[in-house]
Design a protein around this nucleic acid. Structure first.
Lengths: 219, 219, 219, 219
DNA sequence: CATGAATGAGAGTTCATTCAT
DNA sequence: GATGAATGAACTCTCATTCAT
């Protein structure tokens, strides 16, 4: 009997089996993150507990610790995924062969629209929940996340450079645009823009026009 | 000994007594708010519990409920006071006889500086206006707070009108400036501005200049 | 209506009322400690949770925190009470007018019997004085507890001095007797004495006799 | 490639293979125990979890159950090894051709020193961690362990007999010495001896001298 | 008005153990 | 034999709030 059975590890290579296990694990990790995302969207960051995430994911609370070392690690992973989606969104919106001004506008609008449509991810990204203060991420992870955030704005910066702006001015304008977008999002999110009878989208358009029009004459 | 003392309420007239009581009550309410403010400034919003506020105010937790119906009402009152201080700050910064452009810049800088220097008060606003609708605020209080926030921006709006801008454009530019300031504050606070190697103050100055310079030729 | 009611604080002096409240509080604290004691006796130290203590005392877990700042503070209080009882036991066993040798034996036996009959209280001491340094005790409390432990042995030391032994020798012999008692308790408790077919009581008696007989000839 | 390899079990005879497997298994069991020992020594009994042991041994927690049926069985095995080391220590300290009094002292000191230098093993041996109560060992194992503990004391007993003491008195004195040693260890471990300004080693020496000098005149 | 006590829910985390693979 | 995942119970402690006194 024993002799006739072929051991699994002999059929599949060990590596291949492990890869499969890792894939399964990654999928489940993803399901947990989905549940967390959903919970955050409904209850906000502060209102979401580990238990709630576990409940929605169909796990017991302790089981999550097989996938994440702490609640904050879930935050971090969530933020990471959010930034990936943001990058994808912005990149998809920018047609590479379009003129710089069009690319600038497309990137800005995509960036804005992403957070307008997923406001909870703004909370996540800017720690708006608990004081505007970075949370307990490892410095390494924090760096990685920051880099991805910058990446999402790089189409804006590139477009500005393509208009002939010197790099330092491009960075400066990118930052200003970034601030404008974030400000508009926060005001929109908290109902302050309505208070002034304005529309975030049109304010953003004006801002972009102002920047684009500001290009040097030979741009 | 004890029996011979006449109770306070028997010496003073009822109305006068009530007025006095109200004054005393208001003072104590103020002391509690002071303690709360202090606690927030030190510990942040999430780190401050009712117990902590009570402790700092020299009360037991239950006693606070004689002055405030809930923790959120304390937040509301605190935000109210914060907005008063903001108004005072901005008003004090604006010299009434200065030229419009100078008033515009002074008001914008004062607004920005207020929250830059008291970041916790920004948190308060974010907390209470979380999600689409304010939490734990009565509509009446909410209105009052919103009005005071607008008030704080009215020097900006007035200055813009004084440059000859039509009211609708003034409101529009005020909103844009408001968004820029909020965005800069958020980015500054979450360390994102440093990431771009920029300075919030100089970005703000540029923004104000752009708006001011944008005045119609005959302004 | 209002006028006719006499306020409580006017009937009783404030101080008196407070004293009453403190007494009630102390009683309830005592009931919690009783429940804790009972739980320890049944389930052992590691097996006793705050929840269990609360359950037995008829409280919710959180309620205990009105009386004790932490689980370890309960341990400390329990140990404190235990040491008081130990002191009372030993003191009661020693007849002041008895000859020194009788007092020595009585004190030693009382000390031994106390822990033989309440073995869990021995555990408490072991727990709190675990490793080289006490855990979870304030240094002040630790000192107080240590002092009370020494106090419980002072009748032994006094009796030895009364036999004419010099103080340094008395301290030395007290320590040796202390060690013997503790050793016997541990061995008895872990079933090791039965393993040798011996009886702790008679071994203790021999030890005391040896010490007592060791007195200088003119003692 | 894979197919052409002949499985180990086909090359070796069945019995030999089994023997080899057992040896491998024993080695790994030993490695786990080493890891456990290390963990106990560092973190104490209560601070050591199965996970921690597994981590240090390079296993996942579940894997340990291939070698031990429960956490307590690990305790038991650890205690067994500890007692072996104790026996070796004591035996090594006793020169067979030395006079009885010297052997007595050497054995006592070795026994004491063993636990003084490895205090965590005292916890293990006397269940000092969780109430002085035997833990969940099978009676058979418990018997075996008890026997090994007695074995460690047999040099003491032999030496006493060699001084001419009748066996029953020798057992009695051995037990008393055992208690003294354990008591001194516990007191030393919990800082109580320092409290009296004494030294465990010198107290032990006195005790041994008293016993040795107590030999019957014709011994 | 103020206290002290109590509630009840809930927080994040850890644990020994089990089991399919 | 070993893994990784999962359980389910338990842990201490904190919180906003209530209420008799």
């Amino acid at each position: 009997m024993e002799k006739s059975t072929t051991r699994r590890s002999e059929r599949l290579g060990e590596a291949r089996r492990r890869r499969g296990a890792k894939a399964v694990s990654d999928v489940r990790r993803g399901l947990i993150l989905e549940a967390a995302q959903e919970a955050f969207a409904e209850l906000g960051l502060a209102g979401t507990s580990l238990r709630e995430i576990a409940r929605r994911a169909g796990y017991t609370p302790g089981a999550l610790y097989s996938y994440f070392a702490s609640k904050e690690e879930i935050y971090g992973a969530l933020l990471g995924e959010s930034l990936e989606r943001l990058n994808a969104c912005v990149a998809a919106a920018v047609a590479e062969d379009a003129p710089p001004a069009a690319r600038l506008r497309a990137a800005a609008v995509a960036f804005f629209a992403f957070y307008r449509d997923h406001p909870r991810e703004l909370d996540l990204g800017f720690y708006l929940f608990n004081g505007v203060r970075p949370m307990g991420l490892t410095p390494a992870l924090n760096d990685r996340l920051n880099r991805r955030l910058r990446d999402a704005l790089s189409p804006v910066e590139s477009a500005l450079i393509a208009t002939g702006r010197p790099p330092s001015a491009a960075t400066r304008d990118t930052t200003a645009l970034f601030a404008q977008i974030v400000g508009l999002l926060v005001l929109q999110h908290s109902g302050r823009i309505r208070m002034f009878g304005q529309h975030a989208e049109s304010l953003l358009a004006s801002f972009v026009d102002a920047i684009a029009g500001d290009a040097p004459p030979d741009g």
